[in-house]
Computed example of a mutant assay.
Amino acid sequence: MQIQMRYDARAVLSEQMTRTQGLKLKQLSEEAYQPAQYARDLSFAEAARRIQALEAEIELANSF
């Protein structure tokens, strides 16, 4: 018996952020002095976007 599951990208992108993402986003937002970037009700995709942006900003700031 073989079970086939379809991958629905829209469903994954609209899911709530994971606990790991929440912790990472909170840490990065505090490190970047931008606490407003953290919110509990973000989607998975929005959290990933904010994490990536904050990491890039912190990396740029550390390069000076």
Rank of each mutant, 00 (worst) to 15 (best):
L23H: 04
L25W: 02
A9V: 11
D8V: 12
A39G: 05
E30F: 01
L60S: 11
R19K: 11
R50C: 01
L54E: 00
M17G: 06
T20K: 14
L60V: 08
A48M: 05
E31G: 13
Q21K: 05
E57H: 08
E55S: 08
T20L: 11
A61Y: 06
Y33R: 14
Q27D: 04
Q34M: 15
L42V: 03
Q34N: 15
R50W: 05
S43C: 08
V12N: 13
G22E: 10
E30D: 02
L28H: 01
L23P: 00
A53M: 14
A36K: 15
G22L: 07
E59R: 13
D41Y: 04
S63V: 02
A9M: 11
Q21M: 07
Y38W: 07
S14K: 11
E46T: 09
Q34L: 15
A39Q: 06
T20E: 10
L60P: 00
E30H: 02
A36I: 15
T18R: 12
V12D: 08
G22F: 03
Q34F: 11
A53Y: 07
A39V: 11
V12L: 15
N62A: 09
A56M: 05
A48Y: 06
R19T: 13
D8M: 02
Q34T: 14
S14Q: 07
D8Y: 10
Q27Y: 05
D8N: 06
Q34H: 14
F44N: 09
N62E: 07
I51A: 02
R10W: 12
Q37F: 05
G22K: 08
L28E: 03
